[in-house]
Design a binder for these strands. Structure first.
Length: 229
DNA sequence: GCGACAG
DNA sequence: ATCTTGTCGC
């Protein structure tokens, strides 16, 4: 599998301190609570990088629980921030916000590609975006960032807790979206709780590893790539 | 002090 | 994220 770990170039200490403080301030505005009303529209948010210094963000809006695609929007521009583990949101959120402004339909929930609460400071991009737009949100990641967990059983629908190794706090859940396929890491971001986040992810199961909103956002990001080049 | 590290 | 072939299992 992982014969060698990815090497992350050293990050500027001053920048890291500044961004860490910014995340801690945003955390004060975060609200982990049950979803107020059942969602009618759910969005999938994802970004890709057509070139080293160009970011392309895509947002798709689907009906819920029907999962019919009703709209897609995108925006692209230059990348400012470098990728630093734990600070992904500062690199991708700005452009996602611009794409969000182009939507004709206003989604009730935002499903973001990346972690939400399951983050060192509980402020992954899934939470960051929700707080900036003040909308219910959750994060769905393909790889773990922090925390420990037992492997969920191989059948679709099985869930296992993702907890903070030091405090034991539940920070997310490992969810099997499809039989015998790698599970995804689900955590609430804002105006949503863990049970609601996991229920939404499973409610968006479409026979693939990823829930439909993020899978389609991913798919369209690839299709729009040609328009950027 | 030694690892771990979303996209 | 991105660059990449063939291959195994359902």
């Amino acid at each position: 599998m992982a014969y060698y770990r990815p090497y992350h170039p050293p990050a500027d200490p001053a920048l890291v301190r500044q961004l860490t403080q910014q995340q801690n301030e945003m955390r004060a505005r975060q609200r982990i609570e049950p979803l107020a009303t059942p969602p009618k529209l759910i969005a999938g948010l994802d970004s890709s990088f057509p070139t080293e210094d160009t970011i392309l963000s895509v947002i798709v809006v689907l009906t819920y629980p029907g999962l019919e695609l009703v709209e897609k929007a995108y925006n692209y521009g230059p990348v400012d921030m470098p990728y630093v583990p734990g600070f992904l949101s500062f690199r991708e959120a700005p452009n996602l916000i611009h794409a969000f402004a182009k939507l004709q339909h206003q989604p009730d929930v935002l499903m973001v590609d990346g972690h939400g609460y399951a983050h060192p400071r509980r402020m992954g991009i899934g939470a960051h975006i929700g707080i900036l737009l003040d909308k219910p949100s959750l994060g769905v990641a393909k790889q773990v960032l922090t925390g420990q967990y037992p492997e969920p059983a191989p059948e679709k629908g099985n869930v296992t807790p993702l907890t903070d190794k030091k405090t034991g706090e539940l920070i997310g859940e490992v969810v099997r979206m499809k039989d015998r396929v790698q599970p995804v890491f689900v955590s609430p971001g804002h105006r949503l709780d863990q049970a609601g986040a996991t229920a939404l992810a499973l409610g968006c199961a479409g026979g693939y590893k990823l829930p439909e909103p993020t899978r389609l956002a991913d798919l369209w990001a690839a299709k729009f790539k040609s328009e950027v080049l």
